[in-house]
Simulated scan of single mutants.
Amino acid sequence: MMKYTFILNPNSRSGMGGMIWETIEPELIKRQVEYECLRTDYPGHAMKLVRELTADREEHILAVLGGDGTVNEVINGICDISKVTLGYIPTGSSNDFARGMKLPKDPLKALEVILNPGEIKKMDVGLLTRAGKERRFAVSTGIGFDAAICHQAAVSKLKVLLNRLKLGKLTYVGIALNRLFHDKPVKAEVTLDDGVTKQYKKVYFIAAMNNPYEGGGFYFCPDARSSDRQLDVIIISNLPKLAVLLLLPTAYKGWHVHFPGISVMQCKKVCVKMERALPVHTDGEPVFLRKEIKAELLKEQIRVISA
């Protein structure tokens, strides 16, 4: 039996991650599971720990206990994606990775899936390139309105409070309303696999998605599948702000895709050029402001433990 390496973010969901580990570890001991636990102490630490761990390029089972941001760090730290099997116990605010992969929210149920997998799925891994730098993503990458929400949520005191009240998802809703009325939409050029460049006016955001959910449950790309070797791209453009405000609630059910101003398409690669530099994110983790980004898929897929 291979050893499980747990990557624990004790500060996820404002400290809930550490408390959840206190319920997980006794179960591992009781079952006599061979494991080690690597705790993260600061942003970027999970990536460093995983890079050191997988530098041997041998087979590893990594079980992440944290939020989407921790998953993102782990994905970016893996030296050889094809040699890793990934398990996940969601303890974050949005948990879109777990939602998209249909993993249990309950920590003990998620642990049961890791220890007794129903299926090992192969998952595509996205790659964002901006200003010559690369960063992988599991859920999505985006530029504009959705990324601005992620940037603000990362430093939000409201998020800490709502997490303690188990209402962390509302953080993104509140910030979305604030950003909607303060951010000005821009012109954009989008180029897909066929090399044809299309112009879009009054663009609020563009996201390339590997999973269907983003931002704490927004069902932005209902047809996105994490193993189909395609990215689903959504563009919100040429709409008055009031219309965007009214459409946002429908995105929780995926109904927004039927309205004018919402463009969804599939591709293997997308290049986006914005009129001005805007916030960028990968899996909800802020990236510096950029005018141009490119998103595509890695050749290798990662194995994910599923129910």
Rank of each mutant, 00 (worst) to 15 (best):
Lys3Val: 00
Leu161Gln: 01
Val139Ala: 09
Met19Tyr: 08
Pro240Arg: 14
Val196His: 06
Tyr42Gly: 02
His258Gln: 08
Ile293Tyr: 12
Glu59Cys: 00
Gly44Gln: 05
Pro185Gln: 01
Gln152Cys: 04
Phe259Leu: 11
Lys273Ser: 08
Ser12Thr: 06
Val84Thr: 15
Leu278Tyr: 15
Tyr200Gly: 05
Tyr204Arg: 09
Gly132Gln: 10
Glu296Cys: 07
Phe220Lys: 03
Ser226Ala: 10
Val50Gln: 10
Leu49Asn: 03
Val287Ile: 10
Phe97Gln: 02
Ile293Asp: 03
Glu25Phe: 07
Ile89His: 00
Asp56Pro: 06
Gln266Ala: 08
Pro286Cys: 10
Lys102Pro: 00
His256Val: 02
Val173Pro: 04
Ile61Ala: 04
Trp255Ser: 11
Leu103Ala: 10
Glu285His: 03
Lys122Asp: 07
Gly168Gln: 05
Leu297Val: 15
Pro104Lys: 13
Glu275Ala: 15
Lys291Cys: 02
Thr5Lys: 03
Arg303Gln: 12
Leu247Phe: 07
Lys3Gln: 15
Leu128Phe: 02
Arg130Lys: 13
Cys271Ala: 13
Phe220Val: 02
Ile78Phe: 09
Phe137Tyr: 14
Leu108Asp: 06
Met274Val: 06
Val244Trp: 02
Leu86Ile: 02
Leu242Ile: 07
Glu134Ser: 11
Glu36Ser: 12
Ala131Leu: 08
Pro260His: 12
Lys273Tyr: 06
Lys3Ser: 15
Val196Cys: 09
Glu52Trp: 00
Lys198Asn: 10
Thr141Met: 13
Thr40Gln: 04
Met47Asp: 12
Ile89Gly: 00
Val139Tyr: 00
Val203Met: 04
Glu34Pro: 00
Thr91Ala: 13
Leu239Gln: 01
Asp146Thr: 02
Gln230Tyr: 14
Tyr42Glu: 01
Gly195Cys: 09
Gly132Trp: 04
Met265Leu: 14
Ser237Met: 00
Thr54Glu: 11
Ala154Met: 09
Gln266Gly: 10
Lys166Thr: 06
Gln152Lys: 07
Thr282Lys: 06
Val125Pro: 15
Leu111Ser: 08
Ala277Thr: 01
Leu231Pro: 11
Pro26His: 03
Gly44Asp: 02
Asn9Phe: 14
Phe288Asn: 04
Lys48Thr: 11
Pro260Arg: 01
Phe220Pro: 01
Ala176Gln: 04
Ala243Gln: 14
Gly100Gln: 04
Asn95Leu: 07
Leu65Lys: 01
Ala147Phe: 10
Ala295Tyr: 07
Arg229Thr: 03
Pro249Glu: 04
Val64Cys: 01
Val304Gly: 12
Ala207Arg: 07
Met47Leu: 14
Lys169Leu: 05
Glu119His: 13
His182Gly: 13
Arg31Glu: 14
Leu127His: 02
Leu162Asn: 05
Lys268Val: 03
Ile20Lys: 04
Lys169Asp: 13
Lys241Gly: 15
Leu289Gly: 12
Ile20Leu: 10
Val74Pro: 05
Tyr35Ala: 00
Lys253Phe: 07
Ala46Cys: 15
Gly195Asp: 11
Ala224Val: 05
Pro212Asp: 13
Ser227Ile: 05
Phe205Ala: 09
Gly217Thr: 09
Met274Lys: 01
Lys273Gln: 09
Pro10Glu: 07
Met209Trp: 06
Gly215Phe: 08
Val272His: 06
Ala63Pro: 00
